[in-house]
Simulated scan of single mutants.
Amino acid sequence: MKLSEILDRRCIKLDMYATKKAEAIEELVNLLLKTGKVSNIKGLVDELMAQEEVVSTGIGQGVAIPHKLVNHVQQAVMAFGRKSDGIKFNAIDKQPVTLLFLILGPKGKPTEHLQLLSKLSRFLHQTRFKEMLLTAQTTDEIWETLRRQEESE
Results as ranks from 00 to 15, higher is better:
3 L>I: 04
5 E>L: 05
7 L>G: 04
12 I>T: 08
13 K>N: 10
15 D>N: 14
17 Y>W: 12
18 A>G: 06
22 A>H: 12
24 A>C: 08
30 N>L: 04
33 L>D: 00
35 T>C: 12
36 G>M: 06
36 G>Q: 07
36 G>C: 08
40 N>A: 10
43 G>F: 00
46 D>S: 05
46 D>P: 00
50 A>M: 04
52 E>L: 03
56 S>R: 05
57 T>M: 08
58 G>I: 02
59 I>E: 02
60 G>Y: 06
61 Q>E: 13
63 V>T: 03
65 I>R: 15
65 I>A: 13
65 I>E: 11
68 K>M: 15
68 K>P: 02
69 L>P: 00
69 L>K: 06
69 L>E: 13
70 V>I: 14
74 Q>T: 11
75 Q>M: 13
77 V>R: 01
77 V>T: 04
78 M>H: 09
78 M>V: 06
83 K>E: 03
84 S>D: 13
84 S>N: 15
85 D>V: 06
90 N>G: 13
90 N>W: 07
92 I>V: 14
93 D>W: 09
94 K>G: 10
95 Q>N: 09
96 P>W: 10
100 L>F: 02
101 F>A: 02
103 I>V: 07
106 P>W: 01
108 G>S: 10
110 P>N: 10
112 E>V: 03
115 Q>T: 05
118 S>V: 05
121 S>H: 06
122 R>P: 03
123 F>S: 05
125 H>L: 13
127 T>E: 14
128 R>T: 12
130 K>M: 03
130 K>N: 02
131 E>Q: 10
131 E>S: 11
132 M>K: 14
136 A>C: 09
136 A>W: 02
137 Q>H: 15
139 T>F: 04
140 D>Q: 14
141 E>C: 08
142 I>A: 06
143 W>N: 11
148 R>K: 11
150 E>T: 00
